[in-house]
Simulated assay, not measured.
Amino acid sequence: MHPDPRASRYALAAVLLLLAGTALADSDGDRPVTAKVGGRLHWDIARFDNDARGTPNADDADLRAAWLDLSGRFYGLGYKLEADFAGDEVLARDVYLTRKFAAGTLTLGQFKQYVTLDDRVSSNHTVFVERSYLGQALAPTYRLGAAWLSARDGYTLGGGVYSLESIDVWQTRGRAAAMRASHAPWREAGHVLHVGVSAAREDYDHPGAGGAAALRVRVRPAGVFSDNSRLTVLDFADGRDTRVSKASLELAGVNGAFSYQGEAAVARYADGQQTGRLTAAYLQAAWMLTGEIRPYDAKHGRFGRIQPAARGGAWEVALRYDALGGRQRVDGGPTQRDRAVDAWTAGVNWYPRPHLRLMLDYTDSRSRDRQLGTVLDRTRAVAGRLQVDF
Results as ranks from 00 to 15, higher is better:
residue 358 L to R: 06
residue 105 T to L: 03
residue 183 H to P: 13
residue 312 G to C: 14
residue 172 T to L: 10
residue 371 Q to H: 13
residue 318 A to C: 13
residue 88 D to L: 10
residue 104 G to D: 02
residue 255 N to E: 12
residue 130 E to I: 07
residue 305 R to A: 00
residue 226 S to E: 04
residue 58 A to S: 12
residue 363 T to D: 05
residue 87 G to V: 03
residue 28 D to I: 11
residue 298 A to M: 08
residue 238 D to L: 10
residue 241 D to K: 08
residue 332 G to K: 07
residue 9 R to Q: 06
residue 9 R to A: 09
residue 185 P to T: 15
residue 242 T to Y: 00
residue 332 G to W: 01
residue 11 A to Y: 04
residue 313 G to F: 04
residue 321 Y to L: 06
residue 224 V to T: 12
residue 3 P to M: 09
residue 152 R to K: 15
residue 353 R to L: 14
residue 282 Y to Q: 04
residue 124 N to H: 14
residue 240 R to N: 06
residue 246 K to S: 09
residue 89 E to A: 15
residue 345 T to S: 06
residue 327 R to S: 10
residue 149 L to N: 04
residue 378 R to V: 12
residue 167 I to S: 05
residue 61 A to H: 11
residue 76 G to H: 07
residue 378 R to N: 14
residue 41 L to P: 08
residue 226 S to T: 12
residue 210 G to M: 04
residue 232 T to N: 15
residue 214 A to M: 03
residue 342 D to K: 11
residue 285 A to P: 07
residue 376 L to Q: 08
residue 377 D to C: 14
residue 112 K to V: 05
residue 71 S to E: 10
residue 171 Q to C: 12
residue 350 W to F: 07
residue 54 G to P: 03
residue 23 A to Q: 06
residue 219 V to L: 11
residue 370 R to T: 12
residue 290 T to R: 10
residue 112 K to R: 11
residue 215 L to Q: 03
residue 21 G to S: 05
residue 267 A to T: 12
residue 388 V to Q: 08
residue 245 S to H: 09
residue 291 G to F: 00
residue 180 R to D: 01
residue 211 G to K: 11
residue 27 S to C: 07
residue 217 V to M: 04
residue 296 Y to G: 02
residue 242 T to L: 03
residue 106 L to H: 02
residue 381 A to R: 01
residue 166 S to C: 02
residue 104 G to Q: 04
residue 262 G to L: 05
residue 279 T to S: 14
residue 335 T to C: 02
residue 234 L to F: 04
residue 76 G to T: 14
residue 181 A to L: 13
residue 148 W to P: 05
residue 211 G to H: 10
residue 201 R to K: 11
residue 227 D to K: 15
residue 60 D to Q: 14
residue 281 A to M: 12
residue 187 R to A: 04
residue 195 V to P: 03
residue 234 L to M: 09
residue 291 G to Q: 04
residue 181 A to N: 07
residue 295 P to L: 10
residue 360 L to W: 00
residue 254 V to L: 02
residue 99 R to S: 10
residue 119 D to G: 02
residue 300 H to G: 11
residue 252 A to L: 13
residue 19 L to N: 09
residue 228 N to E: 12
residue 71 S to F: 06
residue 41 L to A: 07
residue 222 A to P: 02
residue 127 V to R: 00
residue 217 V to W: 00
residue 78 G to I: 10
residue 282 Y to N: 03
residue 350 W to E: 03
residue 338 D to P: 05
residue 250 E to M: 08
residue 64 R to A: 08
residue 23 A to T: 15
residue 85 F to I: 12
residue 173 R to W: 07
residue 282 Y to D: 00
residue 202 E to T: 11
residue 246 K to F: 05
residue 383 A to L: 12
residue 292 E to Q: 15
residue 171 Q to A: 11
residue 326 G to A: 06
residue 176 A to R: 00
residue 298 A to V: 13
